[in-house]
Amino acid sequence: MANETVDTAARRPRPPALALPTEGLWANRKVQVALMILVPILALTALAPLLPLQAPLETNLRAIMQPPSIDHPFGTDRMGRDVLARTLAGVKVSLLVGFSVATIALIAGMILGTLAGFFGGLIDRVVMTVVDIFLAFPSLLLAIGLVAIVGTGLIPVIAAIAMADVPRFIRLQRSQVLSLRSRPFIDAARTVRASKGWMMTRHIIPNTVAPMLVAGSIASANAILVEASLSFLGLGIMPPAPSLGNIIRDGQTYLQEAWWISTLPGVVILLIAFALHFLSDGAREELDPRARK
């Protein structure tokens, strides 16, 4: 017996399998790549006012539709505005939308999904019927429909995209809770007469957080793409306020004469979405060693 203790004490301790693996996270290659993309974009966005750029709304009719140059790395648009400055302002909007939507969806999804999954019965049936109704719409179309009703602008756009995402998070959280509920450690807690509240707060919710955060990272990327699509269709953030979607829409007319107005901001959206997906992929690998193949 003593032997067993000594022998394993020498074994290299491994991080717990499902806890948030903060050490492993920083060492993950995908997370590193994601941060290599995200950090510079975030820094540029935050420091945009300090950069030697025109203000995003400042026009300069003597320098319209200039191709990319040192002064205007992304060129200028038909009113002589600096496309890079506008893009960075648009990124700010994108990030705000992505973060807000993910936060709303996470919180609402955690609460409703946990209630539905843990208690079942009537709550579950009501919540899931509503969820099914919302999930009956393709996501962008639901957002389009909601924007058509609540109107355009930043807050309505966030609200519309979040409304489309919340049901997905409820469903995810509920399925997590259901599968955790049948795990043997819940039985083990029941054998010591733990209350439902105890099991929910000590056993179920802590084990759902990490996967929900992973899903949140993907949801923020999708929200950024949906906001851009809405703004592109003229249903999101309205000009002159810049958003990546409406900058691209502006450039659509001058695609042949000034290709940079539409294409370059698109590359930025792509990079952000890619980084957020890579981040969640890397995090999932660290959470679930079986995913690492």
Partner: peptide
């Protein structure tokens, strides 16, 4: 594949329009 998967379709559409059509 992930990169392509995440290209916003309106942007892809414009890039294709620019390349293949215009």
């Amino acid at each position: 594949a992930m990169l392509v998967d995440l290209m916003p379709s309106f942007w892809t559409a414009l890039v294709f329009l620019l390349l293949f059509s215009l």
